[in-house]
Amino acid sequence: MNLQKLFGIELPIIQAPMAGVQGNALAVAVSNAGGLGSLPCAMLSPENLRNELAALTSQTNKPYNVNFFCHVPPEPDAKREQSWRKALSPYFEEFGLAPNEVPQQPGRTPFSAEAADILEEFKPPVVSFHFGLPKPELLARIRAWGGKILSSATTVDEALWLEAHGVDAIIAQGLEAGGHRGFFLSKDPATQVGTFALIPQIVQAVRVPVIAAGGIADASGVAAAMALGAAGAQIGTAYLLCPEATTSVVHRAALKTREARTTALTNLFSGGAARGIVNRLMREQGPMNGQIPEFPLASAALAPLRAKAESLGNGDFSPLWAGQNVSGCKEISAAQLTRELADYIQNSR
């Protein structure tokens, strides 16, 4: 089954949910253009989740996707927290900040019964997950209203696990992808491979549709993924400069520089491995550091430093998430970009 039929969309393009750099406006624009717009929900309070869904559904009658994390929250580790704050203390001194004054930040919470209660009010057509899947009883609630279920796999083993647990399609997340890795069976870097090596292996291993993600930035990249058996592509980085995205000023500026060609996996900003543009903090502290708090606890200590630096136009302490291919980033509407991404497919018919 192709994605258009599975999701009721016109184009085989899914906009990647990107927490922190978008709200409902980007999802609405992509869905109205014929793709599958996505709303990241892992950092939304229950009230904000309901408000975002209300705004989204008031602006489109097309299918859309809502995305949640399903990680297991770690126990706080005072020793690791203290070690991380100590490593950051020279930067706090540099900016004249008190490291103990940590503002409240929106957390990253796993999918819950409370979130499912809110979703039942709106019955989103597609619900996607990162870091595996939630409990079977929560999945059953989504299926009860006819919702389709997606999740990310970074290995063949993860794809097989997801298929065995009843997903409707699998997102094959290659190593090139920006933002957080969706791995959940193993966090061994040696298991992680590139998108165009991963696609055919997962396509061969499973029977459900496979969606390519990672390093795909234009229509020819979408076509190449589909030539390898993907049913479509999930694209995030290319949308970061669209006016509908809420990408920060420093993040937008970084995406336009030559430095954006150099990205790396880092756990400094959240405790979880995620790909972003290499900046000062990554150069001086890592980019991977085994002593900092586990995901998602690492972000709290960094928050005041990030806020202060950004107020000065400095992105050296910000998570500048981006995939390995920023060549598709354009300051055009998300609708136009969505149609351009599908041009190669449309014209080859």
Rank of each mutant, 00 (worst) to 15 (best):
P134F: 02
L56H: 11
A298S: 05
V66I: 12
P136V: 04
A169E: 01
V250P: 12
T195H: 01
R261N: 10
G276Y: 10
R108T: 15
S220A: 01
E158C: 05
L341W: 00
L49V: 14
S318V: 12
A335N: 04
I199P: 02
G271S: 03
Q234D: 10
L11C: 06
S186Q: 04
F184D: 09
G20A: 09
M226E: 06
A115V: 13
P243Y: 12
V126I: 14
A190Y: 07
L56D: 10
N2W: 02
Y344P: 01
G96E: 10
V126S: 08
S31V: 09
F196K: 06
E47V: 12
F111R: 02
L139T: 00
K86Q: 09
S186N: 04
R108Q: 14
R339T: 07
P40Q: 12
L44R: 15
A260P: 07
G20D: 02
A144R: 15
A177I: 11
S220L: 02
L11H: 06
T262H: 14
F317S: 00
A307V: 05
Q4M: 11
V278W: 15
N48F: 13
R207P: 01
A227M: 10
V66H: 08
N100E: 15
E121S: 14
L97R: 08
K148H: 06
N100T: 14
Y91P: 04
L162M: 14
A42H: 12
L3N: 10
A205D: 08
G290W: 06
P200N: 01
K135Q: 14
A116E: 13
P124F: 00
A54M: 10
F317I: 04
L185N: 11
G182S: 05
I199H: 02
L240W: 01
G276R: 07
P103F: 06
P189I: 07
A212D: 10
K308Y: 00
G34V: 03
S151K: 11
A334M: 04
